[in-house]
Design a protein around this nucleic acid. Structure first.
Length: 312
DNA sequence: AGTTGTCAAGCTAGT
DNA sequence: ACTAGCTTGACAACT
């Protein structure tokens, strides 16, 4: 079925979607022959190794963004490995100062072409952990992500997405701890941090509660919501998450994926299921959103999604 | 050159 | 008490 395009807001009851929607994919481009997430073993750390790796990563990131621009993919997630070991005590190198020009150059390109950027630190970033050392390392890692986006001089609509964290046997306390720790983060970090509903522990409803306590925007993951929800239909869920994004945050960021058939629940599909994506667009697409396709074949599926949006 | 075990970081659920 | 899985790539040691 063809989805008609209408510019601007959609009239109630009319099937349409927002044409300002940006489509993207995370971290890796499988076609262009370079990657922006080279790393190395901690044991082989040296300043020289770090410098050459970061230099290579930045050059590739620029190439990926140029490819994306050419194809009309205006949303991208930058890999946390862009600067390996940046928050590890072993790294005392002023990488942000040393590569300032390169970061700034990439940032200018992003801004010039109105691209949207996110970053997604790994699962061990847990600001609600009962363990002080875990919290300390998590904050250092978050500050590293903030520094990347700041060195690129990107606006606060470039976001860092994390999950609420662990439950530790007591969800209300875990949520309270998140709120307390969030309040103590540096202001420039708080400006960029958003939480994402996960597929096992913290549902959209939980995240909205955290938002109520802290004001933190909620990034909505449609696939996680399929795995864990409180009965909210998709359209309603998207709207409730969108409301948590204030002026300056930009429009709601979403993660989208679908189930790989025959694999355990929560496993991301290899390639986009265009039928499901059309259904998703019908239900969510009239809200102002940017959509990150967490699909294993990366830009290939993102291009298919873009085609559907352009041509129905 | 190709293969395979392992990698900074944590939590949860299952044995 | 211990470990696989999360989700995944790619480094690096070994054939």
């Amino acid at each position: 079925m063809r989805i008609p395009r209408t510019p601007g807001p959609c009239a109630p009851g009319i099937l349409c979607y927002n044409i300002s929607m940006k489509i993207g994919y995370p971290c890796i481009n499988r076609g262009i022959g370079c990657t922006a997430n080279h790393t190395f073993r901690l044991a082989s750390y040296s300043e020289e190794r770090l410098m050459s790796t970061v230099s290579e990563n930045l050059a590739c990131l620029k190439s990926i963004l140029e490819y994306n621009l050419e194809k009309g993919l205006l949303f991208f997630r930058i890999s946390s490995d862009i600067v390996p070991f940046a928050s590890h005590p072993v790294c005392r190198f002023d990488w942000a100062g040393h590569f300032k020009k390169d970061f700034k150059n990439i940032g200018s390109f992003i801004k010039k072409h109105k691209m949207r950027i996110s970053m997604h630190p790994d699962q061990f970033v847990l600001i609600n952990s009962p363990r002080e050392d875990v919290v300390e390392r998590s904050i250092a890692e978050l500050e590293y992500h903030r520094t990347v986006l700041e060195t690129m001089e990107l606006p606060r609509s470039a976001k860092i997405q994390i999950h609420v964290g662990g439950v530790y046997g007591d969800k209300p306390s875990a949520i309270n701890r998140f709120a307390e720790r969030y309040a103590k983060l540096s202001a420039p970090l708080r400006k960029r941090l958003v939480i994402e509903n996960d597929d096992r522990l913290f549902s959209l409803k939980d995240c909205l509660e955290v938002h109520k306590m802290t004001g933190i925007p909620v990034l909505f993951d449609a696939f996680h919501h399929e795995c864990l929800n409180n009965g909210e239909p998709l359209t309603k869920a998207v709207l409730s998450a969108a409301k948590t994004w204030k002026k300056g945050d930009g429009c709601l960021m979403m993660d989208y994926s679908s189930q790989e058939k025959g694999k355990r629940a929560g496993n991301h599909t290899r390639s986009i299921d265009t039928r499901k994506f059309r259904k998703f667009l019908k239900e969510a697409g009239s809200t102002e959103i940017d959509v990150m396709l967490e699909i294993k074949d990366k830009e290939k599926s993102a291009l298919k999604a873009l085609k559907i949006i352009k041509n129905g």
